[in-house]
Nucleic acid binder design. Sequence first.
DNA 1: CTGTTAATGAAACTGTGTTGCAACAGGATA
DNA 2: TATCCTGTTGCAACACAGTTTCATTAACAG
Lengths: 152, 152
Amino acid sequence: MPLPATEAPGRLQAALASRGLRLTRQRRTILGVVENAKQHLDASQILRHAKKLDPEIDRVTVYRTLKLLKRHGLVDELDLMHMQGEKHFYERRPQRDHIHMACLRCGKIMEFESDLFDRLKGQIQRDCRFHIVVSRLEVGGYCADCRTNPSE
Amino acid sequence: MPLPATEAPGRLQAALASRGLRLTRQRRTILGVVENAKQHLDASQILRHAKKLDPEIDRVTVYRTLKLLKRHGLVDELDLMHMQGEKHFYERRPQRDHIHMACLRCGKIMEFESDLFDRLKGQIQRDCRFHIVVSRLEVGGYCADCRTNPSE
DNA sequence: CTGTTAATGAAACTGTGTTGCAACAGGATA
DNA sequence: TATCCTGTTGCAACACAGTTTCATTAACAG
Ligand SMILES: [Zn+2]
Ligand SMILES: [Zn+2]
Ligand SMILES: [Zn+2]
Ligand SMILES: [Zn+2]
C-alpha cells in the first residue's frame, strides 16, 4: 500500500520534458505504468503492464527507460530484501524518503516515514561531510499480523 | 601454492559448527575468505580468492555457502548502490549494524555507525509492531574528497 | 571403521539486464 | 505542412549472476 496516494498525473512526463528529453509513445506508456502502479513493480511486470497498453513495446525499451529515470533521480530502485529472487523494483521518487519493511513470512511490503530517518541523513551529511544524493533503508523481519498469528 | 586450510578458526566457523552444520574443507576456505576480507567482496571475487587456497572449489559451492550464511544471519548482503553492475557484496554481520556510503564519483565505500540509526530501528519496531531481523541502509552521494577536489 | 546422509562438482539451465545496428520517429525549423 | 537531424526503438545476439539436477564424495556419529 503506497503511502500518500496523492496523484500528480504526468509528473514524470513533465520532468522528462523539462529536461529536454524526447517524449516518445513508448516512454509515455512506461511512465504511466510506473506512475499509476498500486504496488512496487519489477521490470518484467512493468513490461507486461505496458504491453497491454501498447503491444509493440519491447523489454529493451523498458530497461532503457528505467535506467534513464534512475539516472535523472525520478525513480528509485529497490531490492525489497531480495525476497523474490534477484528482481529489482521501481517506484517514483517520493517527495519524502520512506523506509521499506518486508515481512519474511507473508511477503507484505510496508512503508514508513520518520523524522528520525530524516535526522539520521542530516547527521551523515554533517558528520561524514558526505553529500547524499540517494538513500535506501530496507528492513526484513516479521509484521504485526505474523507475530500475533504465527499459526495460520 | 595451496595453503593449509588450517586458518585461524574464526567466528563464522564456530557459529556454523554450533548449529550442527558440516564443516567441509570448502566451507572452511570460503568462510576464511569472507572473514579475512579487507573490503567488500562479491561472489566471483570470493571464488577467485578461494581458488587460490583450494583450486578445486567450484563457484556453485560459493553460491551455496553464501546462501547458507545469509539464511543463518551470519553474513549480510549489500548492493553498494549497484555502482558496479548488479553484483552483490558480502560481509560478516557485525555486532552493531553500520551504514554504507558509496561515493558516486570515486567509488569509495565508507561505513558509519550511529546511535540515531539504532534509535530509528527501535522506533520502527515499536511504532510498526515489526520485529526487525535484518536491516540495510545504503546511501549514494559525494564524499568529502570529491566535494573539495571536483577537478582531479 | 563403517554407514548414513549432507555436501560437492559438473553441466545444463533460468532469468535479468546489455550491446550493436538498421530502421524509425520526435520535434525543431522553415 | 514538409524536411532534416538526431535521439530512440526493436530485434537478435550477447553477457553474466545465480540455480537446478544428479551422480559422486566425504563429514562425522556410532
Ligand atoms: Zn507478515
Ligand atoms: Zn515504496
Ligand atoms: Zn540488488
Ligand atoms: Zn569520492
